[in-house]
Computed example of a mutant assay.
Amino acid sequence: MELDKAIRNRYSVRSFTSEKVDRNIILEILEAARMAPSAVNYQPWHFIVITDPDKLADIYEVYHRAWFREAPACIVVCSDHSQSWKRKTDGKDFADVDAAIAIDHLVLKATDLGIGTCWVCNFDVEMTRKKLQLPENIEPIALIPLGYTTSEAPLKSRKSFSEMVHWEKFTSL
């Protein structure tokens, strides 16, 4: 698939079949995430892959949506704040930015391979920490359920260029 096609076809899947995702496909998806750029190339991310049905049932408790329980696999994307770059001028921690770039690579590669994903951020962080036994410096950033979808891509509504693109300086609308 061409990159443009993957970008246009990617959407938040909320309906999965029960078909398992092959481990080699998951590894291809993770390789795309691993190759993502990060601030100063620190690569502060960690990917926890969950495919065991008992472990999936456990992680499904951190986000209470029926559709989420349908996914036959889930990747929990985490950032290591002790390994992330911090901007000198204001101390901004780029762990979340780096994780977001890796997630974008991950979901686009999944789309390219015919695997549906959803970028879930509204979950119980503390419960996730406990269930995955995360150390203090590791923050769960997003849950990415994966699987084959039963739904069609919806039409995407996007703002116009004039609402978001500014040339040379910020201009009000």
Rank of each mutant, 00 (worst) to 15 (best):
A66S: 13
T128F: 10
V107F: 00
S82P: 06
C78I: 08
E152G: 07
T150A: 14
D22F: 09
G147N: 06
V125D: 14
I101W: 10
T117G: 03
T128V: 10
Y60H: 15
H81Q: 12
N24I: 10
D52A: 03
P135G: 06
T111M: 14
V62R: 01
C121E: 15
L108I: 10
R87F: 13
H105S: 05
A142K: 00
T17H: 07
L27F: 06
E163A: 15
A39H: 06
L106M: 10
I25H: 09
E139M: 12
D90A: 11
L27P: 02
A71C: 02
T111A: 13
F94I: 03
A57E: 15
K169L: 08
A57M: 11
L143E: 05
A32R: 13
G91F: 10
K156F: 03
A39C: 08
A73Y: 03
D58P: 00
M35D: 05
K156H: 13
D52W: 01
Y60F: 09
M127H: 09
E28G: 03
I50W: 02
A153D: 00
E28N: 12
D104E: 10
I59N: 02
P135S: 08
I25C: 08
F123V: 01
H166Y: 08
A57Q: 14
S15M: 00
P154D: 11
V49N: 05
A71H: 01
N24A: 15
Y42I: 00
K86C: 04
K130F: 07
V165C: 11
K169C: 09
D58T: 05
A100E: 06
I101K: 04
M1C: 14
R87G: 08
V165P: 07
K156T: 04
A39S: 14
K169E: 14
C78D: 04
E136Q: 11
T117Q: 04
A6G: 01
